[in-house]
Amino acid sequence: MHFLTLTQVNFHYPKLSRMALENINLEIEQKSITAIIGPNGSGKTTLGKVMIGILQATGGKVLLQGEPVSEMSLAQIGRRIGYVFQNPDLQLFCATVAEEIGFGLVNQGWEPARVKEKVDFCLEFFQLAEYRHVFPLLLSQGEKQRVAIASVLVAENEFVILDEPTIGLDAYRKKILAGYLRKIASIGRGMVLISHDMGFVEHLADRVIQLEKGRIVGDSERKGRNGYDT
């Protein structure tokens, strides 16, 4: 069974005449890195949100391991798929960086000692240790982005969707992030990368899906090291 299956998915925002997504058919496997690329306004973010049911498709079906996403609660989906929003401001809600990263674990009933261990590791790895007690929204854009990514990856979901994870990151932090993503992919956790940053995606993705004006215009599996094959 495919991990995510989208059949004939359409989406349009209320009050807008243009379809944001049109006739999307897509199967995504769990153990793979899939990149979704495309120009500004092509529907990349909308597609990500439809995949996990933040937005309900206005037509067609989205299945998560065979179950319709529309019949699952956000929490049920969230325990299987981690989601990093494009704008970190929209997903940070705790009083300190450490609480933010530990939030999901605490609320899923982890023991305090194990939570602390995981949080400490993430703070160290994403170079956020000095901000442990700082209010997340006061950080710089690049730092907020790292907090948002850390607070999702810490939960070790079997699958994650990252929407433009490289925005605001410098080359050094991008490399660290790429390393981490490659590592979790190698132990069997899959992901969807939504990005316009070809340089970042190229070295990571097993498969590249290209969107344009809400439609899929390209879908290529990676073949060897130097190129894609349709």
Binding site: A75, Q76, L90, N107, Q108
Partner: peptide, 8 residues
Amino acid sequence: AIQLRGVE
């Protein structure tokens, strides 16, 4: 965001 982090 809270629900997506697995809280029902």
